[in-house]
Design a protein around this nucleic acid. Structure first.
Lengths: 346, 346
DNA sequence: CTGAAAGCGCTAACAA
DNA sequence: TTGTTAGCGCTTTCAG
């Protein structure tokens, strides 16, 4: 299995290795006749370009680093899948890094990817603040796009769902179906998803009921917290439990059922993200779907747009419109309300 | 941010680039004094080795390709996480490929990774048969370890859970808790997990009840199939529904509840894999936990063991012992039965 | 133990 | 349009 190189193909096709390179890489125009001969010889010899050599010379590896907090977070696999496909379609490979939800691990992973000379970085930061330093340093070296979560202003390009719009869709739906006493189970902390969703609840719920913003409990994005928070909020007899993500909502649903509550008759429950679990819950969860495919496409587009040269330039932020998915946890006989999706750039 | 190279470090430390390389890569013995000077200079200049150049020269990229059917299958993220950590600990990076459950995409992804010169491949085949050709070809080029699922005999090293032992644990537990009329919801097809689990059910259930092996329905590994299969099997009044994986079990659980069945009082339900969803189901699912961490560690070990040179040598197969996790879907008041875990090599 | 020199396979100037 | 010539940054003989 002796490696076939450009030289071999050049020898076999009777032209220089430069020409062969140009044909196979499609870098520059080449005579039609020669091109055919070369391609034929390459085919016949079973030539496979050596990406390593190419990368060394051209200073571009054709790889993108994908750094995320925890692949086991059920929202990420779908996103990873879309990103992998979008990038592969452009002939780029994905180096995956899992940070174990720890900013120090994250910094180490970023450094490792950088020393592997990734062309760019796609990154979902572990923490709004504690990730900032490492992210900013990385953004100075390669094009970097923040996904799903922010990391302070002006640090890098970013693309995320419009959390406020999503929460507004939920509240609008609850109002339209006659709910008047909503409450909120959210996440404490500075993560942009946590902040934006709870702010949007507070802003929107006040219109429904002046007391509503006060009926909220803040913990983390977990099922356990969803269960615990219900015990805190249920005594106030809400007719809707708005949750900051689907995991919380799944926990809330479980606990409400244990307490004998009638969902959705007595109380509606809503989530956010539309992870696979949402459709499986019983009753199935009304939630806000993130446009994962577009998120991935937009991230790829931002990467392509930003020049490889270290020039920072102005940061771009893309916000994608979410979609409400109505299921049995908020109405007895769900009938999906399709919302049109659109992207707005800021 | 001019790249610091070996040459710069050599210049700054007053010795040759060869010596610097030897110090920094630790390849050969170097005088203690020189070593210190070199390391100091490297530190001071902020030298970062260029993995691409190193790879070209040493013919080893330090990357491993991880190829899987679908990252959105809820069993895989945990496995990916463990593999990523195990490999990163050895200083290797992970190139991720998602095959969309399609053997042709799988073949393309394998080819792409190979042309990127991965040192090795970790692969969960899409299909027992249709993946074989591409996998065998790849295994001829780089060390390759099959994970979780097989791909025909003698194709490559492989490591997987002992599916038969897992099913035996389930049946044993059901027998011990007084169940006498089990039925089985499995997956059709040739995937090794499907075959092994249903064979083990048939073998083990006969001891419980001669009619039991006949009470089985075969579909795929999905929630939908779990729901549908219950409608087929419930009329035969089983007192236990043994499922080939957790997704099926989740569907079965849902449908049984809709039918008003009392779980676990009237009928027990069991799964396989122990995906995160299992603990969240209501009632929580009794299932078989795969030793994911050990699976990953063993895979990494097999890779390390196999020489980079194309010498096939005998294939190794490692089977890891699973663990029964008893939850509320099989007993009213669950108390975990801890099984000792051990690895046996064949 | 250390240095000099030869490439790994490819692409990018620069000529022709 | 094509060929020639330098390297990319590193590791690895081969001498010393």
């Amino acid at each position: 299995m002796a490696e076939v190189t450009l030289k071999d193909v050049a020898l076999a096709s009777g032209c220089s290795i430069a020409t062969v390179s140009r044909v196979l890489a499609g870098t520059r125009p080449v005579g039609a006749e020669t091109a055919r001969t070369v391609r034929e010889a390459a085919e016949r010899l079973g030539y496979r370009p050596n990406h390593v050599a190419r990368a060394l010379r051209s200073r571009s590896t054709g790889t993108v680093g994908l750094v995320l907090p925890q692949i086991t977070n059920p929202f990420f696999p779908t996103l990873v899948r879309e990103l992998e496909h979008a990038l592969h379609a452009e002939g780029r490979a994905v180096l995956l890094a899992d940070c174990d939800d720890d900013p120090e691990t994250e910094a180490a992973r970023i450094a490792a990817l950088l020393s592997r000379r990734v062309d760019a970085l796609l990154l979902i930061p572990v923490d709004e603040r504690r990730s900032r330093e490492a992210v900013a340093a990385a953004a100075a070296q390669v094009p970097l796009v923040l996904l799903d979560r922010g990391c302070g202003p002006g640090v890098a390009d970013s693309v995320a769902v419009d959390n406020a719009a999503g929460m507004a869709l939920v509240l609008e739906h609850l109002a339209a179906t006659g709910r008047r006493r909503p409450c909120f189970i959210g996440a404490a902390g500075t993560a942009s998803t946590a902040v934006e969703r709870r702010a949007a609840y507070e802003a929107g719920a006040a219109a429904l009921d002046p007391e509503a913003p006060g009926r909220s409990a803040l913990g983390d994005f977990s099922v356990e917290w969803g269960r615990a928070a219900v015990d805190r909020l249920w005594p106030s007899r809400p007719d809707a439990v708005v949750c900051a993500n689907d995991l919380i909502a799944a926990g809330a649903l479980q606990r409400l059922r244990q307490l004998g509550a009638d969902v959705p008759g007595e109380v509606a429950v809503t989530g956010f993200d539309d992870i696979p679990l949402a459709g499986l819950a019983d009753p199935a969860l009304t939630t806000v779907r993130q446009p994962v495919g577009e998120l991935a496409a937009e991230a790829a587009r931002l990467l392509a747009r930003r020049p490889a040269g270290g020039d920072p330039g102005p940061r771009r932020t893309v916000r994608l419109a979410p979609q409400l998915v109505v299921r049995a946890s908020s109405v007895p006989d769900p009938r999906p309300l399709d919302r049109t999706r659109s992207a707005s750039k800021v």
